[in-house]
Amino acid sequence: MELPARVLVADDEPDIRLLVTLAVRKAGCTVVDSVGDGLAALAAARAEIPDLLVLDVSMPGATGLEVCAALRAEPATAGCRVLLLSAGASPADIARGLSAGADAYLPKPFPVAGLVAQIRALTSGVRA
């Protein structure tokens, strides 16, 4: 049987963290860890090497952009998929996110169904 994709969730807002966790489960994936700051996200990513990280952009410790850039610089984590979530919705915000190496960028507030679809798309093909 195919193993579900492993997803790491990081957002400093507990309510959003839970909402994202629910969306990950709806997408048929496993949540390997959910953390509230950037440094914890980086440490968990190095330990778990997840298939996908769902990262908030503005977090204490390190921003989602910094976490993303750090993951891309390390061979062990360079292959992880990254989905950024952010309250910044301007084209400039999105461009910054994608140039930090993110695979997708979703502005907040996001429709849950849209997040579920993004998670499915980003984890399809992995662990096949």
Binding site: D15, A87, K108, P109, V112
Partner: peptide, 17 residues
């Protein structure tokens, strides 16, 4: 903008669920 968007994200997200 950030402080209003964040709670609204929760309200709209959980409503949808």
């Amino acid at each position: 903008s950030h402080e209003l968007r964040t709670p609204l994200s929760s309200i709209l997200g959980y409503l949808e669920l």
